[in-house]
C-alpha cells in the first residue's frame, strides 16, 4: 500500500494543492518593497483570495519575502529567520536589488546576489514591483509548487556547506547556528 505509486501521487497531489493554496507569508519588511505589500493585501488587489495571508512569526510561515535590498546586517537576521521556518518553505526575491544589486550595485554594505546566500524560488523584477507583478509572482510560485519544483529548502539542506561558505564571507564574526533539521 505504502509503496503504491498511485497512492503516493494522490497524497503528493493533495499536499501540493493545499500548500499552493495556503501560503502563510512572513511579513518581514527588509527594504523599501515592503510598502507594496499593504496594497497587495488590501481591497484593491486582495492577495487573500489566492490563500496568501500574513503570518506573524517565522515558525508559522511558509513564505519569506525579501522585499528589496539587504544590507549585510539584515542578511544575518534573514538567514536566522529563514532557518527558523519550518519545511516546506519558499522564498520570493523582490525587485532588482535581490537580483543583481539594483541601484546598490556598488554599495559596500548591501549584498548583490541573494541566491548565493539563501535559495530563492521566484524572483519578481522591477524597482519596485507593483502589486500586479507581486501577485504574478505568487501565481508563479503556486504553479511551481503544484509541479513540485519549488524545492529551495531541499537545495539549502543539500548544499549547506556551500551556502555557509558564502554567508561567512560576508558575515565574519557572526555565529551561524548549526540547526539540526
Amino acid at each position: 500500500m505504502y509503496n503504491d505509486k498511485n497512492a503516493q501521487t494522490i497524497v503528493e497531489y493533495i499536499q501540493n494543492f493545499t500548500r499552493k493554496n495556503s501560503l502563510f507569508m512572513l511579513a518581514y519588511g527588509t527594504g523599501c518593497g515592503a510598502i507594496e505589500l499593504p496594497a497587495t493585501l488590501t481591497s484593491r488587489y486582495d492577495a487573500e483570495r489566492l490563500g496568501v495571508r500574513g503570518a506573524a512569526t517565522p515558525r508559522q510561515a511558509d513564505l519569506l519575502l525579501i522585499t528589496g535590498y539587504l544590507s549585510t546586517k539584515t542578511l544575518k537576521r534573514v538567514i536566522r529567520v529563514y532557518e527558523q521556518m519550518q519545511d516546506p518553505k519558499y522564498v520570493i526575491g523582490f525587485g532588482s536589488c535581490t537580483i543583481n544589486g539594483g541601484m546598490y550595485w556598488d554599495s559596500y554594505n548591501t549584498i548583490k546576489l541573494l541566491d548565493k546566500y539563501i535559495p530563492v524560488d521566484v524572483y519578481i523584477n522591477g524597482c519596485m514591483p507593483r502589486p500586479e507583478s507581486v501577485i504574478a509572482g505568487f501565481k508563479e510560485l503556486q504553479s511551481l509548487i503544484a509541479a513540485g519544483k519549488a524545492d529551495g529548502a531541499a537545495k539549502y539542506k543539500e548544499n549547506l556547506e556551500w551556502y555557509r561558505e558564502n554567508q561567512k564571507k560576508v558575515l565574519k564574526n557572526w555565529p551561524l547556528v548549526e540547526y539540526n533539521w
Binding site: 493545499t18 493554496n21 495556503s22 486582495d46 487573500e48 490563500g51 519550518q86 519545511d87 516546506p88
Partner: peptide, 23 residues
C-alpha cells in the same frame, strides 16, 4: 475584498498538518 473561499480553513489545516514540525 473578494476574500478566500469558504473552505479556505480546511486547506490551511491540511497544509499545517502536512508541514514538518521540528521545534
Amino acid at each position: 475584498r473578494v476574500g478566500p473561499p469558504v473552505y479556505q480553513n480546511f486547506i490551511d489545516v491540511i497544509k499545517l498538518y502536512s508541514k514538518e514540525t521540528s521545534i
